[in-house]
Design a protein around this nucleic acid. Structure first.
Lengths: 197, 197
DNA sequence: GGGGTTATGTTGACGGTGTCAAGATAGCAT
DNA sequence: ATGCTATCTTGACACCGTCAACATAACCCC
C-alpha cells in the first residue's frame, strides 16, 4: 500500500505539531487553522480531533514544546553565568529566541492561551518551571549583592518583565526597532547592575 | 417615524464604537465580531462597512481612542512629577489603566493591530506621540541624574519595556499576580532610581 | 486464525465569521 | 421636482471550529 493511499496515517500526532509549527511561523496564529493543518497532513478535516481535544489543546502542545526550548536556554545560559557580561549574554540569547520565532513567542505568552483558552496543566507546569529556573539562577548569581530587604523573587519578576516587555515591543513592532533592541537591553542591564553593590 | 423603525440610524459611527468598547470589555477581542456589533446597534450585518473600511479599521479607531486616554494620563502624571514617589505614582496609575481595561490594553499594544493588520496612520501617530510625551517627561525628570554617556531615549525605551512587560505578564495571567504587581513595580523603580546619582 | 474492542479516519452538517456585489431607501442640494 | 450621494438592505461566498454518525484498520485475547 502506498504511503499516500493508506487509511491510517501512522504518525499524525507529531506530523500535526510539525506542520503547525511551520504554519505558525509562516502565517502567525491567525493563519493557523485545523483545516489547513489537516490538509497539509493529507488527512480529513476532523482527523486531528483524535489526537487533540480541540484547537486550544494543539496550541498548548505547541507552546509546551517551545517552552522546553526556552527552559533549556535559560539553564544553559544562566547556570554558568557569574558576571555582568554573562547576564548580558543571557539576555541577548533570550531576545534572539523571541525575535527569531516571534509567532512562537507570542503564542507562548499571549492571551490566546492564557486567557481566551484554558492553558493545559502541562503548559502551566513547564511555563512556571522555566520561571523558577530563571529565578533560581538569577538569585544564585546575585547572591550577596542585593540590598538588604530586597526580595529576590521581586527582582526576578521585575527583570523578567523588562526582558519580556522588550521582546513584546520589538516583535509587535512598536517603540523598539529590532536593531535597537540589544542596545536597549544593554542599557537596562547596566542600570540594574549599577544599583547592586 | 419611530426610533427603531427608521431606515437610517443617524449616528451609527459612534454607536458602533461605543458598542465595540462594551463588547471588548465583556468578551475580549476574540468575542468582538462585526455581526454582533451590527445586531446590537439594531442594524444589518453590512451596515458597519459604510463607516469603517473593515474590521481592522474599526479596531484601530477603538485603539486610537484608548491611546488618547493613556496619553492624557502620561501628561497629567509625568509633567508634574519631580521625585521618586511621583514616578512610583505614575507607574501605579499606568498599571491600573492596563489592569482595569485589560482587553483594551491588549488591543492597543497587541499584534492584532500592529502585525496581523496594518495599523492606521492615525493610530500610529497617537501611539508614537504618547511615547514621545513619556520620553520627554522622563528626560526632564531625570535631567542631570543620568550617568554620562547614557542615552535618555534608551532609558525611556528600557523603562517603558519594564512597565509594559509587567502589564503584559499581569493581564495575560502569567508569572505576576495582580496583587503582586504594584510591589514588583516598586522594586523595579527603586532599583533603577538607586542607579542614578 | 476468528472475533470483539479500541484507535483512527471519513463525510455530513451546523452555526459562526469577514467581506463583496447588487439593489433599496432617504436625505440633500440644485 | 430631479438627480446625486450617503446610508442601509439582502444574498452570496469562502472560510472557520466542532459535533454526530459511520468506516476502516489495528490490536488483543481466546
Amino acid at each position: 500500500m502506498t504511503q499516500s493511499a493508506r487509511y491510517h496515517h501512522g504518525d499524525l500526532h507529531d506530523t500535526l505539531l510539525q506542520e503547525a509549527n511551520t504554519l505558525l511561523n509562516e502565517q502567525g496564529v491567525e493563519g493557523l487553522s485545523l483545516r489547513k493543518l489537516a490538509e497539509r497532513a493529507g488527512v480529513s478535516r476532523t482527523a486531528p480531533y483524535h489526537h487533540f481535544r480541540d484547537k486550544n489543546a494543539l496550541l498548548c502542545a505547541l507552546a509546551t514544546r517551545a517552552f522546553a526550548q526556552l527552559d533549556a536556554l535559560i539553564q544553559r545560559q544562566l547556570d554558568t553565568a557569574a558576571s555582568e557580561p554573562d547576564i548580558q549574554a543571557f539576555v541577548i540569547e533570550y531576545l534572539r529566541f523571541a525575535t527569531e520565532n516571534p509567532e512562537q513567542y507570542e503564542l507562548m505568552f499571549g492571551r490566546t492561551l492564557w486567557k481566551s483558552g484554558e492553558p493545559t496543566a502541562e503548559l502551566k507546569a513547564i511555563a512556571y518551571r522555566s520561571f523558577r529556573h530563571y529565578a533560581e539562577g538569577l538569585s544564585a548569581l546575585l547572591q550577596g549583592r542585593l540590598p538588604v530587604g530586597t526580595d529576590p523573587l521581586r527582582v526576578a519578576q521585575a527583570s523578567w518583565a523588562t526582558i519580556h516587555g522588550l521582546c513584546r515591543l520589538t516583535i509587535d513592532g512598536i517603540y523598539v526597532n529590532q536593531e535597537d533592541m540589544e542596545a536597549v537591553s544593554q542599557q537596562a542591564v547596566a542600570l540594574i547592575m549599577a544599583a547592586l553593590k
